[in-house]
Design a protein around this nucleic acid. Sequence first.
RNA 1: GCCGUCGUAGCUCAGCUCGGUAGAGCGGCUGGCUGUUAACCAGUCGGUCGUAGGUUCAAGUCCUACCGACGGCGCCA
Length: 430
Amino acid sequence: MSVRDILEGRLTEKEVELRGWLVTKRSSGGVQFLMIRDGTGRLQCTVHKDEVGEKIFQKTDKLTQESSLTLKGIVKVDKRAPDGYEVKVRDLQVIQLAAQDYPLSKKEHGIDFLMDWRHLWIRSSRQAAILKIRAEVIKACRDFLDEEDFTLTDSPIFTPSIVEGAATLFETPYFGDKAFLTQSGQLYVEATIAAFGKVYCFGPTFRAERSKTPRHLTEFWMVEPEMAFFSFEDNLRLQEEMVSYIVKKTLEKRSKDFEVLKRDIKPLKKVEPPFDRISYTEAIEILQKNGYSIEWGEDLGLPHERTISLKFEKPVFVHRYPARTRAFYMQPDPVDSKVALCADLMAPEGYGEIIGGSERIHDLKLLEQRIEEFGLPRKAYEWYLDLRRYGSVPHSGFGLGIERVVTWICKLKHIRETIPFPRTMTRIYP
RNA sequence: GCCGUCGUAGCUCAGCUCGGUAGAGCGGCUGGCUGUUAACCAGUCGGUCGUAGGUUCAAGUCCUACCGACGGCGCCA
């Protein structure tokens, strides 16, 4: 028996037993009002002195916030209850009387304080709603890819070498040697496509960048599909279908949580294929017309991404960035080799990039040349070059940042609330 | 890493301009209230004012350094 069952009206006038936690308690003389949370929802329970007797009433009176308890009673429909239903308590047992100094009050707290108490903060309805939506986003990613006949092939977290060369990696001892925590599983899924055709990896990734922004974590989760024989265009089509699926499923399954967050879902309902596509070159022109002093060849910062994103109602692809500024493995555009066949997907409502993807170089000679141009240690990439020696095929893939998607879908100001225990440059506790 | 703002009770903050020995609300505790909705009412507990140094008869308040947090930028998918 759960609070959800009661709120859905299935147990009215029935005797129920609930197990959960005391969210808050109010009283008015001989009646006490307990707000109980059991993981499926919240429900008001009433304890009447003249019905339960002095002993139980005293026990209830001594309950502290977040005490765990079991209670029995009858489910009643009552207009005075916050959700229309309440349980009239007959008996109550305390599992553990919580210490009286529970640090989180109903009033405001600062973010640093809340993060220090993150292990308790996740009990709050707002944080729980965000994490429920996160869980749904993850499930939608997996369901979508599984239904599209993808095979999950997870990549290692300990890696021997730098993947893209640029970003800072976390280093850790490894039996007398050094290892690095992965910053992308992409190179490894490029290997598994030759066994399975369409694959993805899904796991945590680590970046030791000293980024202090509302959209960076040092540890975050990424889903990285990789598809044999997929052209650049095929790749974009898959991305817009997947993102639309995620949004649709999340709206469908977690509408209550969006209400808790007071998230206006109208913009989300517009998310369906096809998404708009603009080239990097067009993006630069748009930005210049909007008064930015940015030249072709420069990378886009958050203000730029935001400006672009706000011009579209749906997510928008910005494609064909200058090849020089992009990763070594990206396929040059056959029409103009100055740009790469890559695209970033910008979430709407001023949120920036949520996906980065590209067609990969499948020609051995070209890849060898790029590794040299980028000054990468050739030896570390021999296995990766093997993939171009033995049955190389054109292929494409992308990486979708789970937390960035959740930040956008929930319309949050900061990414740190989208993961149960965020890791940032300055926080590793709790 | 750079720029800005901030650091006073468990929490959120006022007090700093103009130096004179610390305040509110919330939470906790005690009591009251038989339908509360961030309940309400009364009482009560609670602070070496981030740290170190300096100026001064006197520093929460002025000065310097450091530490920490937050916001923005940079780095970065």
